[in-house]
Design a protein around this nucleic acid. Structure first.
Lengths: 102, 102
DNA sequence: CGACTTTACGGGTCGCGTAAGTATA
DNA sequence: TATACTTACGCGACCCGTAAAGTCG
C-alpha cells in the first residue's frame, strides 16, 4: 500500500469513474486501474464493483474510504506540524496529533 | 514520503542508531541512511543530529515522530477494519476512524 | 456502436545490496 | 583503531504511458 494508492482510491470513489478520476489525477486510466487492482489484491478484498458505466463502492470499499481520507489528512497535518513549530513562540513543545480539523 | 520511510524513521528514532535500526528492519544501513536523508530533504527539515555514536532526534524530529507513529497505526486500523467487518453482525455499518487505542 | 475497464508492451526511474570512503571518540 | 554514518556503483523491480483487446448497455 502506498500514499498514491490511497489518493487514487479516494479519487475513484469520489468520481465513480476511473477515467474521470484519472483526468483529475493527471495520469492515464490504465495505470490507475492497475493501482486499484493492486490495492485490492494487497488488501485481499474487492473495493469496487465494475460496471459498464463506471465503478461503484462495495461495502468493503465504503468501510475503507474514511480511513484512507483520514490517513491522507494526517500526512498533511504532519507536514504542517513541521512548518509551523507551534504558531507563536519558541516551540520545543511538541503537539500530539489527533487534533485534526475534520 | 512513503510508508516505508515512516517505518524507517520511527525505527531509527527508537534505536538512536541507524545500524541497529537497519538490523531490526532487516535491511542494510546504506539504504536506511539514504531513506532518512531523502525524507529530511522532502520535508525540508533535518530530523536527526548525526554523532559518532549514533543519531539523536532534533526538535523537528521529535515533533514529527508522534505523527509518524499515528499514521502507521491508522494503516493497521484500516486493514483490520476490512478484516473485521464490524466484529459482531452483518456489518454494513461503517465505523469512523478516530477511535484508536493509542 | 459508444463508453469504460483491462491486458500487453517498451522505456525510464527508483531502491536495495555490496564495496569503498569519511569522521569521531 | 574501532564504530557509525555516508557516498559510489551495478542490478533488479516497479510504475507510467501508449496501444490493443475485452465487455456491457
Amino acid at each position: 500500500m502506498s500514499f498514491d494508492q490511497l489518493r487514487y482510491f479516494v479519487a475513484v470513489a469520489e468520481e465513480g469513474n476511473i477515467g474521470r478520476a484519472a483526468r483529475r489525477l493527471c495520469i492515464c486510466q490504465p495505470p490507475l486501474s492497475r493501482q486499484i487492482q493492486q490495492l485490492e489484491a494487497e488488501l485481499g478484498t474487492r473495493l469496487f464493483d465494475r460496471t459498464a458505466r463506471g465503478v461503484t463502492l462495495r461495502p468493503s470499499g465504503a468501510r475503507f474510504l474514511p480511513f484512507a481520507r483520514d490517513i491522507l489528512d494526517r500526512v498533511d497535518a504532519a507536514r504542517q506540524a513541521l512548518d509551523d513549530p507551534g504558531v507563536t513562540s519558541g516551540g520545543d513543545r511538541l503537539r500530539e496529533p489527533g487534533a485534526l480539523g475534520s
